[in-house]
Design a protein around this nucleic acid. Sequence first.
DNA 1: GTTGAGCGTT
Length: 285
Amino acid sequence: MAEMYIRVAEEENEEPMEIPSEDDGTVLLSTVAAQFPGACGLRYRSPISQCMRGVRLVEGVLHPPENGWGNLVYVVNYPKDNKRKMDEIDASSAKIKRGDQKTSDLIVLGLPWKTTEQDLKDYFGAFGEVIMAQVKRDVKTGNSKGFGFVRFADWETQNKVINQRHMIDGRWCDCKLPNSKQGPDEPMRSRKVFVGRCTEDMTTDDLRQFFMQYGEVTDVFIPKPFRAFAFVTFADDQVASSLCGEDLIIKGVSVHISNAEPKHSNIAISGFCLGRRPSVAALCG
DNA sequence: GTTGAGCGTT
């Protein structure tokens, strides 16, 4: 029998793709899977019974119905109830993988003066997805200070980058975990966190909206005039402490979360509170 | 207009 093609589609009413048959009139499951990754069989709607029918499958070989394949459209079967395509499966497992290890900003030391954020993105983009890049500059002159920061989407990428030297615009550069991330900071029991490296365009609403995702936000305080930091208070102290040490990206900039140092005035008050026995929570929040 | 170990406007 001459080679012919059968019509196969992902769903009954989708545009079919023509799949080649073998010389003996059968179709190999592997041929189907080559076009529909993850496929485990075929079915079709019987013109007689109007029911879906399964195509006979023996050891990887699909056998035609009694009257031949005909001009019917065959629908791909996927394992179990799992009708996702392979690329979707890959994407979802990648998403799970992404969540297992958080990345942190890396300091990039030794940058040429001329290197820009775009240069950093271009260079490090070859290693993996770059989600933040900065070149630190003198505020007055705008000149580069010769170092910057970069953050990757994936932990694997971050590790790869840390473990080698980098030739960027003609100079050898090093990527390290910044000091702010090294050494275990002892977390204190506080509902309030310090948010460092804020930019001036971050409003209290922005911060509230952003931090809501971690838990109920009870207060946002931004000192004025602008001082590049803020305080965010949560209803739950565990939420607060879980964020300490993190670098989070708000409006495209990396902010650093750490313990809110208790206000000096509050230390005095808290001593006073404890001596006087009123509710500590009421007065020393 | 300069420089070359460092640490991000607390």
